[in-house]
């Protein structure tokens, strides 16, 4: 899952980034409204965390502009201002959810997951592909009911494959969704992780489609 955090509170933004990364999210940061708008337009995110008081372009305008451009990425707005009008205005300009600062980090993560789940049209936070079950809330992977321990990065790669179970997924797409925009390492990092996943889940769990990418077998 790839998330964009737009907040001019640098330390707050990096703390959210650290936490979400530890949860297995891929997190990009922007500190101004203009940068945030650019990033959200340029990349495909699963969710955007958007502060309202931003230099350059405020959160409402970023949100409205994204919706005008036809980008329907789920948006969670943050504000330190008081009052229900802020909340109402945020939701009216196209945001999907709203949190007042200071917020509980646990609630932020839960709401982000709920947003992504809703956007994908699912009712639970479990992803099932064949005999593999991914419990996204608990970050657990079950193989035929048995728990398999995965690293955060392995889990993220498997989650992305599971979301598109049965379909071929290009390496580039995995890279974009699992690694943040600052990553400029070699593409074969994916091969390393896929290799590890095959070792833990069985050699035939992930098929290689030559010249196209990988496919998680959905049986």
């Amino acid at each position: 899952m790839r998330v964009l955090v737009v907040d001019d509170e640098v330390r707050l933004a990096s703390a959210i980034q650290r936490g979400l990364q530890a949860e297995g999210f891929t997190v990009d940061l922007a500190h101004t409204g203009t940068d945030g708008l650019w990033a959200a337009t340029e990349h495909k995110y699963d969710a955007v965390v958007l502060d309202i008081m931003l230099p350059g372009l405020n959160g409402y305008r970023v949100c409205a502009e994204l919706r005008t451009r036809g980008i329907d990425t789920p948006i969670l707005m943050l504000t330190a201002k008081d009052g229900e009008f802020d909340e109402a205005e945020a939701l009216d300009t196209g945001a999907d959810d709203f949190l007042s600062k200071p917020f509980s980090y646990v609630v932020l993560v839960a709401r982000l997951r709920a947003l992504v789940r809703r956007a994908r049209g699912r009712a639970t936070s479990d992803l099932v592909a064949g005999n593999i079950t991914l419990q996204l809330g608990a970050r657990r992977c079950l193989l035929a009911g048995e728990q398999v321990s995965l690293t955060a990065r392995e889990f993220a790669v498997l989650e992305y494959l599971a979301e598109h179970a049965g379909d071929v997924v290009a390496k580039r797409d995995i890279l974009d969704n699992v690694w943040d925009e600052d990553f400029d390492g070699p593409d074969n990092v994916i091969e390393v992780h896929v290799h590890a996943l095959r070792r833990k889940l069985g050699a035939d769990a992930i098929e290689t489609v030559r010249g196209a990418g990988y496919r998680l077998v959905d049986r």
């Binding site: 650290r18 530890a22 330190a80």
Partner: peptide, 21 residues
């Protein structure tokens, strides 16, 4: 209120994330 909540939010989130991991 904005000026009070912003540093509070920042401090709280950093501590929460630290405690979580």
């Amino acid at each position: 209120s904005h000026e009070l909540r912003s540093p509070l939010a920042s401090a709280r989130t950093q501590l929460e994330v630290g405690l979580a991991y």
